[in-house]
Design a protein around this nucleic acid. Sequence first.
DNA 1: GTCTATAGTTAGATAGAC
DNA 2: GTCTATCTAACTATAGAC
Lengths: 204, 204
Amino acid sequence: MIDDRSKGDVARAEIMDAARQLFLLQGYNGTSMRAIAQAAGNRAVAGLYNHFPTKEAIFRALIEEQNPYGALLGILNNAQGETAEAYIRSALTDILIVMPQYYDFFQLALIDLREFEGRHVAQVLSEKVFPQVIGVIVRLQALPGLKPLDGVVLVRLMASLVVGYIVTRNIAPGMTFEQLPHEVWSRQFIDALLYGIMDDDARE
Amino acid sequence: MIDDRSKGDVARAEIMDAARQLFLLQGYNGTSMRAIAQAAGNRAVAGLYNHFPTKEAIFRALIEEQNPYGALLGILNNAQGETAEAYIRSALTDILIVMPQYYDFFQLALIDLREFEGRHVAQVLSEKVFPQVIGVIVRLQALPGLKPLDGVVLVRLMASLVVGYIVTRNIAPGMTFEQLPHEVWSRQFIDALLYGIMDDDARE
DNA sequence: GTCTATAGTTAGATAGAC
DNA sequence: GTCTATCTAACTATAGAC
């Protein structure tokens, strides 16, 4: 066999792929099991129930298996730097490249927030992400150069930077945000986080 | 009459109020016209169609009539300050207090993004908000103290700050973000935007 | 402008043959 | 594991009396 996955695994993957596309296009309640079955290789609706007990189970599987947390933690753990500035520049530069590639997931997370009060995302976040992020922050604060900020402040500021970057990139209708290339925007955002937007000799 | 609104206006308001609550709780496709009619004073479904031609028209009316743009522009136009720092502190302090009060609207905007590709929000943004914001930025850049940043960079940084603040406040499940009071968080965010997170004498 | 009643459609999920 | 056929419930929207 060319593909060593079982027939069932292939079907499962096709169903999830079709469901993801339709959820993103039409929302959760706007997507019917019929539509998913048809998009997943013209299957019969009943066949879907061999792989997932309910429609919600398909959605939950998407959140659990296609999230960017592994990539995010990989970047945080592998970023190099002898100073806090070098580490943050290295990590955020990569994060601002990689996270927007998971825009589909962020859209699914918004659906989760609306349709399920965020419970699927929250479970993965609290189980897999937060514990590891704490360790990263401790290591970051041991590097020289940071203002004496509370760790939780540091986490929220960096998370806000990434979230704000992604949201403003996709929300502004026909705005000029796309006229500058990503590298310029990334640099501007990181510089602003590190040193702010005020002139140095204007400090009051 | 105690209320000088016509009977029709009262019904319209009740319908919109019920629809908003249900859209926020259950999403757009998850909310039926039946449920709206029942929540709006146990009305008959057919009565809704005297006030709105379709279900989408109810949603559009919510976006158009309950958005925070008037409040936002009011703050930007009324903020005082002889320097850029004073103006930004004044404006952002107010914005970070007022905008989270419109969290319901942001949630409706997310629904718009998912169900209607953001077309209702984008229309209001491009017609009413962007033209006025340009004027504010020009005035801000005439004040002393700013680094020589492109106006569009300034807009996106400030928008990201506000969006990131609101999103991280409501997404993190049971996280410690609520353990510090709003005033502290607001101050931390504004300070970070103005002067960054690096120690002054650590600049490389 | 409100109601009752209902038309016409589509939803999620299941039964049972293969 | 896949299919055809179907159940029951819910949906948006309309007709027509008051």
